[in-house]
Design a protein around this nucleic acid. Structure first.
Lengths: 189, 189
DNA sequence: TATTGTTATACTCTATAACTATA
DNA sequence: TATAGTTATAGAGTATAACAATA
């Protein structure tokens, strides 16, 4: 073995609430109890991580992972898109996408169809059950959003979004615009 | 004996900026281009993830990972604490902590000492090089913080922290207070 | 020859639990 | 017997690259 360090992790999975969310790895924070504590970077990162974790828990009853949710949503928004097109949108390697689609297809939430124009590609469509589950997941997501904003009034909510976007723009993010990346969102994990 | 280190490559390369930070997996986002887009949960999660990723890149030149940074910082704040005490603070399993300490000790950034009062425990101390590297890392972290807040004035910065803490409190977080968790912070990943 | 989807292989990280040396 | 640290084993997840079918 090597030792090395360890590095990354990510994880996922598991979670529920374990300290180290499944694989969600988590690198490390800038401080333990010193100055960086009231830092914007540290705070945004911490809260964002907690939100992602909670979102995963929220979806757990549906047996759905955040990335699966993102995939169903992407297909719903553009039915008939190819597997690799979806992979590109969600920033998931094509080889990984196979397993994701396999799992959801086995549960009959979506189906692969052959594209008559190009028999190499497989187009993706949600099944009725898939639409239903997605709708349910969207309700849960909306409820979570309400819960998160319980201590904010409308103006404060908009202000928070504005401030966050300014921070995000410093990193090249264009949140609130579109473009999503399966892992950037409530992903973390 | 413990590991050989010899491997050190991982560090580098990994992430830098690859879509999937090292191993940072990333679950998934709540939406692809629909409603959840201007959602607080989605935005906080996305920005937090980006910040964590950037923090990792910021530390890369020092060959330091976020969690290693957190460990050095924890030791600095409480020199002489035991390995397992540090593990508990950072929410890292004791068995994993071994590799972390091994790596940093091999680089002579910290050292293990025996506790004369209880020879089972190993107390941790930073070496001069460790203090130096940590100081350097703190400078980089401060620079990142400034960069992130470049579009905010003092009042806006405080306001953002306040709003984020309100969201965090909905999840049981007590950011800005203390208590850190190696992975929650600029960790994510 | 290039591309889509798939499979195969190797590697990393993690957790669990055994093991040692102390107490 | 219990605890701090260590090591060993096994498993989950990913990336890389090789592969088949189609273009």
């Amino acid at each position: 073995m090597r030792v090395d360090e360890t590095t990354k992790q990510h994880g996922e999975g598991d979670d529920e609430d374990g300290p180290w969310p499944g694989g969600v790895v988590a690198p490390a924070p800038p401080s333990i109890d010193g100055p960086p504590f009231r830092a914007v970077g540290f705070t945004v990162s911490s809260v964002g991580y907690a939100v992602a974790r909670r979102f995963r828990q929220t979806l757990a009853p549906l047996q759905l992972e955040p990335r699966e949710f993102a995939l169903l949503r992407a297909i719903s928004a553009a039915e008939g898109l190819s597997q690799q097109a979806a992979a590109e949108r969600l920033q998931i390697p094509p080889s990984r996408m196979v397993a994701f689609v396999d799992a959801l297809e086995a549960r009959e939430l979506l189906e692969r169809r052959h594209n008559p124009l190009d028999r190499r590609t497989r187009t993706l469509y949600l099944t009725p059950a898939g639409h239903e589950l997605l709708a349910h997941a969207l309700v849960l997501a909306a409820e979570l959003e309400n819960h998160l904003c319980a201590q904010l009034n409308g103006a404060e909510r908009e202000l928070l979004l504005d401030l966050l976007q300014r921070v995000g723009s410093q990193l090249g993010l264009e949140v609130g615009k579109h473009a999503v990346h399966a892992h950037s969102a409530l992903a973390h994990e």
